[in-house]
Design a protein around this nucleic acid. Sequence first.
DNA 1: CTCTTGACCGACG
DNA 2: CCGTCGGCCAAGA
Length: 115
Amino acid sequence: MVTDFQMNVYDACSRIPKGRVSTYKELAKALNSKGYRAVGSALNKNPFSYCRSIRGSSSATQINLVPCHRVVSSDGSLGGFAFGVSKKTNLLKKEGISVKANKIVDFDNVFFRIK
DNA sequence: CTCTTGACCGACG
DNA sequence: CCGTCGGCCAAGA
């Protein structure tokens, strides 16, 4: 089942624009909480994962999927990913974010602060 | 209700 | 620049 907390996490996460990244801490803060770890756990169970084949590619912009790969650790390192960090790296690069040695390049520049 | 387990964080040595 | 440690918080056993 999906708890309220988790939904809040997914919602906050989905606000991160393409080509930018945020942190677990920032997400928690947006939820008015200090449960950084809990946020990570929630993303881990993310039922709306980006890796789920975006079939059709038809047209519609119905993407209600949560871009959980745009969430990294507060020190700029990648953090984790349910389908493997390498997968996460690829997705990020595909969006124009460079990653090196398991860290976001120019982190301060691509960091997105949630309202 | 009480552990235990994380995609975490910050301070310290 | 490591590795450890204590603190956080939600879920699940």
